[in-house]
Write a protein that binds this DNA or RNA. Structure first.
Lengths: 344, 344
DNA sequence: TTTGTGGCCGTTAGCGGTAACATAGCAAAA
DNA sequence: TTTTGCTATGTTACCGCTAACGGCCACAAA
């Protein structure tokens, strides 16, 4: 542990230190450091030099308190390991980059109580906006969001009533769309494989939409299988094996996400099962992982990048039209038929 | 947009509001809300009730400024989409959970300048600690870290000199270890496939260690191939195809990460290439994805969970021994031979 | 009665910045 | 010369909360 290379080892620096070192008032230093107000070129130089020399780092806590402005946007998502949220984050960061706003993420692990505390924590930092996944929140959460006094954007899903704004797709409709494609291709004995989903409302909605269409044709799911935890790819294999064993006459496997779908696909190929002849397969999400698989899994793109971008535009007040809040943007997921649905 | 369900729609609430609503001083409210100091049970109840009723959310900005304590830990990583950092984050969160500390992540995209500004931003919030990936930082970054006055833990890598503490593995040694296993299995015409790595120092170190061992045996890499961007799985396929075509006599493919390794594995299996007889394969990281592949790719676990945990223990002052700083913890990655290295 | 003693609660003085306003200095306009 | 109008800088009053300390009261011990 080398000792700090600068003078005054202990106490952390304040504006006053810079002000004394450069012979001007704290206010002038503040102005220089924020590029605000008029400062002569010579004093500006002098102040910057002093700040650099001392290694001064402004205290945003104090700044935020004084100015009543916090350049933070809270982003609350269920999980990071999901592969879906990193892309949303990318969209958000892209847009926020040149607004001076900074995303701060919180993770809920799909737990409503956890979400509640994360929202509380976030709001206690008085961010300039909040982006959070899903439309389903505890009553207390809803109340906090409504009170927040800043833009709140609920993302991913639009089947429901947002507190303020919403950007997403209709998962119900996505489920329907996929079912229609599958039916059109002539499959009839269809199984669903997905996560145990007490709190994955979006997966639930997709399944509901999916079953709706089946019902219209007088059909119902031939089988269903759920999992939780573990390697999704492996689970996909195992579940697929289980379903094919239990219900040998299924001719289609609809997965609630691409990862388990990919596992199922690998399993079928391993087993020499004719895909999409003997069984068809489809997933959901459009993860780029699929590009590397031996065959392209049918899937549906969830518009994650756009969702990120648009939500960031809303919280940062960048929406072209001057809408202030309460905007609801529905994106349309596109079906990517891949090679695992036979052409009708 | 429903109107807020609570009174006083505009102005955001302060301690004063709660204090007036409950007929005690702001200080007492503060004490109740923080569970600090003595307050009678009856006033405690009364205050809590008022706070709940009003929907009061404390202002941590003000609290932090007044108390000079910020319950935030900055975590600075190169990328989220990596599959490796989510697991580190999990380890960190696990430990921080019951310390009152909260992680705040910043992403650098492997750009040193970006890292510099992220560090600056982080420090301007005066966090109680900083965890950041890697030992290589710009000079300005190093200076800021040294000045920070809070615990700084550099993670993932220990081949170098940390500013303060470090937790990680020796990537150089990991590369050596893998090379030794490969040599021991009798492979001799070895190719390396990895990311273009101007700033991935760890991959670079692994490769250096790897080549060191080859050199000891009078060997050198038979071929090498680099990529950047795109679907790692797909790139793995493409690169593998390219290498096998260009250098048909290679008998081993060493990948810089598991994702491209998995792509390579899938490609070889597709092509009916005998693995591990004709060519052996190995990756790095131990991602759980591998569990679902048709064959288990040889890899080396990077101890990500432990790295996360230990770094969090250090910043939170939870290390069992009372070491204050400057601790360096080297973890030992374990080789997982899988099914893609023939047994010697 | 006096003197602790401890529980409960209020007062005061900041924390480190910034908004808003005041002011000094000086050149151009009257 | 005086007035006006800038520009560059300083002053003051907070922002919302908490540390530190002080006061008051009831009750026990001396």
């Amino acid at each position: 542990m080398a000792k700090p290379p600068h003078p005054d080892p202990r106490r952390t620096l304040t504006l006053r230190d810079v002000s004394e070192a450069s012979g001007v008032s704290e206010m002038t230093v503040s102005r220089v450091l924020r590029n605000r107000g008029d400062v002569s070129e010579t004093t500006r130089e002098r102040v910057l030099e002093a700040a650099r020399r001392l290694g001064y780092v402004p205290n945003k806590i104090a700044g935020a308190l004084a100015s009543q402005r916090v350049n933070l946007v809270g982003v609350i998502i269920p999980s990071l390991s999901n592969m879906v949220f990193p892309e949303v984050m990318t969209g958000i960061s892209d847009v926020l980059e040149d607004t001076g706003l900074q995303p701060v993420v919180g993770v809920t692990n799909y737990l409503p109580e956890r979400e509640e505390t994360v929202i509380y924590e976030m709001l206690s930092w008085r961010p300039s906006g909040l982006i959070l996944a899903g439309l389903e929140h505890s009553e207390a959460s809803q109340a906090m969001l409504a009170q927040a006094g800043v833009p709140v954007v609920e993302i991913m899903d639009i089947d429901g009533t947002p507190v303020d704004s919403a950007v997403g797709i209709s998962h119900r409709r996505a489920g329907r769309k996929m079912a229609e494609a599958i039916m059109a291709a002539g499959y009839r004995r269809i199984a669903f494989l997905g996560t145990q989903m007490p709190n994955d409302h979006r997966a639930k909605k997709r399944l509901a939409g999916f079953e709706e269409v089946l019902a219209r044709e007088g059909l119902q799911l031939a089988d269903r299988e759920f999992y939780s935890g573990g390697s999704a790819l492996l689970k996909g294999r195992e579940m697929t094996a289980a379903v094919l064993k239990r219900t040998p006459d299924v001719d289609f496997l609809y997965y609630s996400n691409d990862m388990i779908g990919a596992g199922g696909l690998l399993y079928c190929l391993d087993q020499g099962i004719d895909v999409p002849g003997r069984v068809g397969l489809a997933g959901f999400n459009g993860v780029e992982l699929l590009d590397g698989l031996p065959r392209r899994l049918a899937t549906m793109d969830a518009c994650r990048l756009d969702i990120g971008r648009l939500s960031a535009e809303i919280v940062s007040g960048k929406r072209p039209n001057g809408i202030i809040g309460g905007e609801i943007i529905e994106l349309s997921p596109t079906l990517q038929p891949g090679d695992t649905i036979r052409s009708a």
